[in-house]
Design a protein around this nucleic acid. Structure first.
Lengths: 206, 206
DNA sequence: ATTACTAAGATTCGAGTAC
DNA sequence: TGTACTCGAATCTTAGTAA
């Protein structure tokens, strides 16, 4: 976010035309007059500010940018845990889900109260969901610690209980994740893949 | 404000240690892995973040910086006109106040209801007051337009009625200002300079 | 007084690469 | 995999100066 634009905002240039020279801007923001001038030209080209004989104003567009930026910060700083819901599309997995669920079965039964269907559902999140995805980390997960069985090591899991159309399930995040941030792996009591097909679904945390 | 720090904030790195690679940061913020790495090193040197085996955390200091920045934006965007009060120190002026008040006397009488004492009080604002100073512009001023007298031109003034310890006065801002942003010029009915001396005073807008 | 151009210097960045 | 170094390129900033 441009520091000059924020400075002008603090001066109230979004409320009333404001007279200020590039020399003063430079002095206030500890930069040269020349640089202030150049950057004002850029801001003007971007349409963030407008200059006229009455003075300088932050445009609607410029103010919107500032507001969006402020809201992002606000959300990040003031966010509280609320109902989290993801939207995404079912995609093909690697088919290895079956193997792993068999291996993790006992642990899953202990932690979820049931042994899930032998197969996982991979859900690719929409572009707007990524930010929410990161909020998962802020919620207390069910933890399955690393364990060893038959001499083979299995990495720990974070589980988040959820529902997909009233079907009970859980989001599974391997502690040492291999999926990208944009894919959620779901286990559930029922065979989700058949019921849902390749389409958009909603996942609601419980 | 550093965009990487804001990104990490959005990921909740201020609440819990967070595992993320410089490659992913680069991809998310549309920059090279090398650049993300370099900037992470800088953030770490500044003390804004801390990296350890458990992951990455935003430090107290880093979070404070983000919070201050957010508050500044918030104040600028959500500010409403409230009682404005300045604190500053009386300083020596150039002594030209007397000449000007005599010239502006008639106009001042018209606008303030009295002819001020022939001399102005210069008040240097404290460092925290500068932001408030800029809010003056958002308040409707009393305006004395440019005028000519005896062939000499006099620049317009903005007046803001105020009180200094219950003494009626006005802040005078020349339209073509010569003072820095940190000095307020005050006129009043009484001889303020003698009453106050060189000390800290409060100016309350009315 | 003001703004903004040019040229040179300073900083930031990405590609290649080592570990 | 991952991080972080070097180095040339791209970008940003300042000084000088014109208008």
């Amino acid at each position: 976010m441009d520091e000059i634009l924020i400075f002008l905002l603090k001066q109230g240039a979004h409320r009333a035309p404001f007279r200020i020279s590039t020399t003063v801007i430079g002095k206030e923001l500890d930069m040269s007059q020349q640089n202030a001038s150049r950057r004002m030209i850029l801001l003007e080209r971007e349409g963030a500010i407008k200059r006229s004989s009455t003075g300088l104003t932050i445009t609607e567009s410029g103010l919107r940018t500032l507001n969006e930026f402020h809201n992002e910060l606000k959300n990040a700083l003031e966010w509280k845990v609320e109902r989290l819901e993801f939207t995404g599309t079912v995609i093909d997995g690697l088919g290895e889900g079956e193997y792993y669920i068999k291996k993790y079965a006992k642990k899953l039964k202990e932690n979820l109260g049931y042994i899930p269907y032998f197969g996982t559902l991979n859900v690719k999140l929409g572009p707007g969901e990524m930010q929410k995805r990161s909020r998962l980390r802020l919620i207390e997960p069910i933890i399955i610690e690393d364990f060893e069985e038959d001499g083979r090591k299995f990495g720990g899991l974070f589980l988040y209980k959820c529902r997909i159309k009233d079907i009970e399930g859980a989001i599974v995040i391997p502690m040492r994740t291999h999926h990208g941030m944009d894919v959620l792996e779901i286990v559930s009591k029922e065979k989700l893949r058949e019921k849902l097909g390749n389409k958009r679904i909603k996942i609601t945390l419980v």
